[in-house]
Amino acid sequence: MTKIEVTVDGAKYADDVEPRMLLVHYLRERLGKTGTVVGCDTSNCGACTVHVDGRSVKSCNMLAVQADGHEVTTVEGLAQDGELHPVQKAFHECHALQCGYCTPGMIMQSIDLLNDNPNPSEEEIRTGLEGNLCRCTGYHNIVKAVQTAAGGAQ
């Protein structure tokens, strides 16, 4: 067991974990943050995307021990005072989901993309989301939601 101290969605946690425990399993099984889902488990699909120190990562492709001393934000930590994050609102308004399984990862990656590039073109949105797969192929409204969120931020 290895001791880790990590901040998740603003709260500090100290835990003993097995070094082989993946960050996504720590978030879901230890902290109960099941908003972050396991999609492909091969680091392809991006459904498990969270932010570590403000940058998007695939939490199935990182060990919990590697998050020691770092700050993690999951989709559950985005809303402030009961108010959805602007990107969450845009996904809701544009109905940017079909089955919804890829949505947490899509939202987390979209926020990272907009942090880097507040006014992306459609092509830049599609390239910026290339590490996130929607098995329903519902990309059209996802791109629209990112455009809507970008417009709302202007």
Binding site: S43, G46, T49, V52, R55, S56, V57, K58, N61, M62, Q109, D112, L113, G128, E130, G131, N132
Partner: peptide, 9 residues
Amino acid sequence: VADPQIRHR
């Protein structure tokens, strides 16, 4: 290289 999330790690 890969995708943005992979490039961050």
